[in-house]
Simulated scan of single mutants.
Amino acid sequence: MTAQFKKDVYVGLSAPNKHLPSKYFYDKEGDALFVEIMHLPEYYLTRAEMDIFENQTDGIIKALQLSPDLYFELIELGAGDGLKTKRLLHLLDQRGYKFDYFPVDISQNALDKLEADLKSELPGVSVIKKQGDYFQILASLKEIKKPKVILFLGSNIGNMPDEVATQFIYDLGSNLHPGDKLLLGADLIKPASIVLPAYNDSKGVTAAFNYNLLTRINRELGADFDIGNFRHQPEYTEQEGVARSFLVSQTDQTVRIKSLDKSFDFKKGERIETEVSRKYNDEVIHKIIGGTDFKISHKLSDGNNYFANYILERT
């Protein structure tokens, strides 16, 4: 992890338009901050997808064409705290479905906490946690030719540009068999008045989440970022349908990263892009999966039509 972290930070801060991968938000502090974000009044995403999982659980099970008599593997990519998935797990367990739950996450801390929670809340559910790269883990599971349901929730697909998302879903398909399902969470395109506050809450938790990325670089790579010299700045227009978060340098400054043996110069107003969050509609989803081995079989939306769970079937 440290070697890849160093490489990604070097590449990102050396680029003409500086950027850092959003996956590095999630250390122990970042995990805790994101859980807090998910409960903020401005952060509609979790509530909207939770609405689907709470009120349409039967619909999800029917759309996935699950049978109580047929074993399957339920694999969640980026499981986090499993808040929404627990609703589905509870009903599957209650009705005697035969499955193993494989939470996959880059954060060992998040996996350990989720495992402990599930042992307490749903002791009858078999949990096999997997820490690491999604595709390496899926490749290792592909050899077991059992039906698979992949969960990729929270509109995490939105952190990828469309062409990268297409490749990602294609790669998912290459690790699955015909008939396997992908439940894809997608935040729908909405006005800026709804979207922007979700990335710039009144309590400043989202800003702290963004700043924590620099704190992590300081701690793990020996950098000397002065957090006070940067400002959190989100941007979004409904026409583009893409929310972006930046850290903006408030002064001309130089940052030294000891483990890279390199210094990086920042001009006043220069930005580091830390997160991209794409918003979707049916047209965008069809375009993204057009070059993959998936087809849309069902779509479930929340009561406000803020969010959708698309169920894709591997052909």
Results as ranks from 00 to 15, higher is better:
Gly241Asp: 03
Ile106Glu: 12
Arg278Ser: 06
Asp187Gly: 02
Gln56Asn: 08
Phe152Tyr: 13
Val125Asn: 00
Gln4Leu: 11
Asn109Cys: 11
Glu220Trp: 10
Leu74Asp: 10
Lys130Thr: 02
Phe53Lys: 00
Leu188Phe: 10
Gly59His: 01
Glu238Ile: 04
Phe72His: 14
Ala207Trp: 05
Ile285Pro: 10
Lys62Ala: 07
Thr274Asn: 01
Ala198Asn: 09
Ser202Pro: 14
Val149Arg: 00
Ser126Gly: 06
Asp31Arg: 11
Glu73Phe: 00
Ile37Arg: 06
Phe53Ala: 00
Leu141Ala: 07
Ala48Thr: 03
Gly185Lys: 05
Asn156Gly: 07
Lys98Asp: 03
Val255Tyr: 01
Ala223Met: 00
Leu77Glu: 10
Pro147Asp: 11
Phe152Pro: 03
Leu260His: 10
Gly222Asp: 05
Pro197His: 06
Val255Met: 07
Lys23Arg: 13
Val11Cys: 09
Thr166Cys: 09
Thr166Gln: 01
Lys181Leu: 05
Ser174Met: 12
Lys6Phe: 06
Lys295Ala: 06
Leu33Phe: 02
Arg256Pro: 14
Asn304Thr: 11
Asp180Ala: 09
Glu235Ala: 12
Phe99Thr: 01
Leu111Ile: 06
Val284Asn: 03
Asn210Val: 09
Leu172Lys: 14
Gly291Gln: 04
Pro197Asn: 04
Lys148Ser: 01
Ile288Lys: 14
Gln94Arg: 10
Phe34Arg: 08
Ile75Trp: 01
Gly132Pro: 00
Ile150Val: 09
Arg278Cys: 06
Asn200Phe: 13
Leu183Thr: 03
Phe266Ser: 05
Asp201Gln: 03
Glu220Thr: 11
Glu313Ile: 15
Ile157Cys: 02
Arg95Phe: 05
Glu275Asp: 12
Ile52Ala: 07
Val9Glu: 11
Glu238Asn: 04
Lys98Glu: 02
Ser277Met: 10
Asp282Leu: 09
Lys295Leu: 12
Thr85Phe: 04
Ser174Gly: 15
Val164Thr: 14
Ile272Lys: 03
Ile169Lys: 13
Gln4Lys: 12
Ser245Tyr: 08
Lys23His: 06
Leu138Thr: 13
Lys145Gly: 11
Gly30Phe: 10
Tyr306Phe: 11
Tyr134Ser: 07
Phe135Gly: 09
Asn55Thr: 06
